[in-house]
Design a protein around this nucleic acid. Structure first.
Lengths: 163, 163
DNA sequence: GCAAAATTTGAAACATTATAACATTTGCAG
DNA sequence: CTGCAAATGTTATAATGTTTCAAATTTTGC
């Protein structure tokens, strides 16, 4: 899977989205998973925003597509996408974002800008290592890690109120 | 503030709760904050469980007290308690737990057992350091960290299905 | 003490997020 | 083509959280 631009900097986002979709198709094929039209469309909608999208935001987009969907449709698609590592759920926001490391095994860490709402997904092996150490120091066997940092992204530290 | 037993091991929980309340009173006094009866009662209810309690769980307890409370009452109390570092919200569970490091400046890290539901709050300076490093490596200024590890506690690794 | 101001609580309605349950359709293997 | 499993549609409902405004209480300045 190819490298991607970071959200804080302008980039050709259409290309970025279509690359994500292409990658997703490959990943699903490898996993014998069916990336159905709905699932693909939901993934696309989520990718079109670098900001996390709530399930009901996705639902609204689907509706404006003319697709008359109910909540379970969206939640099921999101479950599927999560299970196959294509999107992440941001617990502190009740929202979803496209995974920028799909296909690679990774533990996501999210930098969430409270001003512009953009989210950067990071892989920080040192952090994971320390987390594992801390957990095993307590005899705890970790399975899933939720690591979300809210704060100010570089851009919003200088020019507040950005998008 | 005194040391506390860890939730995985049996201990005199009543004493543990009343200690937490005593500490809370001291802390609020120092901060010129009003630990009103409702707030204190909510804190007590939360402390009586080592497992995180949802806002509506608290609400139900209040009702069985005879206190006819509405959701905002609980959420307001919880906001207050959070702001003064007396409880933490566990984002991945939509629930609240008493802070075992109240009064000390700390970044909480939570070990959540998916089998028994107990939660251990940890302070891991090495983790915080690595998180800070990772964030500043991206030029990001962190403000609040959500770090929640789900897995199996020592006890549930050997005897599953506990508590 | 006392009145004005600020904080806290009560109460009703509402908004948002998520799931349950069951019917229907679609894709695929034999 | 048939029958099974997976996916989707549909309706209803549960769980979580907020807005708003009114009433009561506490604090503060005098």
């Amino acid at each position: 899977m190819s490298a991607r631009a970071i959200p804080y900097r302008p980039h050709n986002h259409d290309a970025c989205v279509s690359q994500a979709l292409t990658d997703a198709r490959t990943i699903c094929q490898r996993q014998n998973a069916r990336l159905t039209p709905i699932r693909e469309r939901v993934l696309e909608l989520i990718w079109q925003s670098h900001k996390p999208l709530g399930a009901y935001d996705v639902l609204a987009e689907l509706s404006s597509d003319g697709h008359n969907a109910a909540p379970p449709t969206v939640y099921r698609a999101l479950d599927f996408l999560q299970q196959h590592g294509l999107v992440h759920r941001i617990a502190s926001l009740n929202a979803f974002i496209g995974c920028t490391h799909a296909g690679e095994s990774h533990t996501g860490m999210f930098l969430i800008c409270r001003a512009c709402g953009n989210v950067l997904e990071l892989t920080a092996p040192e952090v994971s290592t320390e987390v594992r150490k801390a957990a095993s120091g307590e005899g705890f066997r970790p399975e899933t890690t939720t690591l979300e940092i809210a704060g100010l992204c570089p851009r919003c530290q200088s020019e507040p109120g950005h998008d």
